[in-house]
Amino acid sequence: MKRLVFFLPLAIAAIIGGFAIWGLSGDRDPSRIPSVLISQPVPAFDLPPVAGIDTPGLSQADLKGAGEIVLVNAFASWCGPCRAEHPILTRMAEGQGIKVVGLNYKDKPADAAAWLDELGNPYVRIGSDETGRAGIEWGLSGVPETFIVGADGTILYREAGPVVGDGLKRLQRALDAAKSAE
């Protein structure tokens, strides 16, 4: 018994070392903050359409009774990474037949319309959030962010940042899980 006490410092060092390894490991990104909205219903918001295009606006009601999985993508014409993920969202909408809706965050309608005109419009609905107030309801920290909303209007997943590379892998995995859970 007394001998065991001598191993105590070693055990403590091992615990601290374990934490250090965990803290430095490549998979962990301390700046990634989990969204509190996961498994919560879609927040209350009601956004008008982007002026100058004929895609309808977006509100809470459109997502609550959708009856299918919807991707909600927050984007802006001034956002570079949004441009990078745009073809992937288009492919998901057209190739995989996923319903994608847009939240046009703090953007001028004319700029957004020109941007969609240039790159194409994969969105079934787009809400124009010029003040960024709906963005706060969604807990956005910036754009792009993509949410998976279940058929019953529950938020299932959030990907902060563009859905390219690892981000796309994570989103696809969450999307597959959501589909199989339906």
Binding site: S31, I33, K106, T131, G132, R133, G135, I136, L140, S141, G142
Partner: peptide, 22 residues
């Protein structure tokens, strides 16, 4: 939420301003 170690009171990020106004 953008510049994570700064309070919104001293942050120049757009979201910080929105939250201050809110």
């Amino acid at each position: 939420v953008v510049c994570q170690n700064e309070p919104i009171d001293s942050s120049n990020a757009g979201v910080a301003r929105d939250l201050r106004l809110l």
